[in-house]
Simulated assay, not measured.
Amino acid sequence: MQNLRKQPPVNDSNCDRELLSLLLDAKLLVKCVSTPFYPRLVEHLLASPQQGRWDAEELARHLRAAGHEAEAGSLLLAARGTHRALRTFRTALGAAQRWL
């Protein structure tokens, strides 16, 4: 993961859906939290709901277990369709505590 942190800004030329799918399949979401790939991974996860392939709640549990409670709550809020304006830090923390 060290090399992922040194990547240039993430864009369509260095980050495609196949790469994002491979990272999610390998359950590397937690390890990617501090990388520029994380926002794209979450977007891909939410935009590509495939029955049985990726479970946002399970991934949120992994995030919380690794100490990323705000990220876990934020993922849950996004997966449940909460409007962006309502996805504050405090709300994300509360969601992680309440739903996980």
Rank of each mutant, 00 (worst) to 15 (best):
R5W: 10
G67N: 07
A95H: 02
R87S: 07
Q51L: 09
R64M: 08
Q2E: 12
L63V: 04
A92T: 04
S74N: 09
A56E: 03
G81N: 15
E57S: 06
S34H: 12
R40H: 15
A85F: 08
W54A: 00
A72P: 02
E57F: 09
S34V: 10
R53K: 13
C32A: 15
L41K: 03
T91C: 10
L41M: 13
H83G: 03
K31M: 12
R40C: 10
H44R: 10
E18A: 14
A65M: 14
Y38N: 08
N3T: 13
F37P: 04
A85N: 14
N11V: 06
G67H: 04
K6D: 13
C15Y: 08
Y38M: 11
H44M: 08
R17T: 12
R87P: 04
T82F: 03
R40D: 13
V42H: 00
L22V: 08
R90C: 02
S74E: 11
L46S: 04
E69I: 11
H62C: 10
A96D: 03
L77Y: 02
R98E: 09
C15K: 09
R61I: 05
E71H: 15
W54V: 02
A56Q: 04
S21H: 11
L20C: 06
K27V: 08
E71F: 04
Q97A: 15
E57G: 01
L46Y: 06
P9G: 05
G94L: 03
D12W: 14
Q51V: 09
D16E: 12
C15M: 13
A56M: 05
K27Y: 07
V33F: 07
M1Y: 09
A96H: 03
L93M: 15
P9V: 14
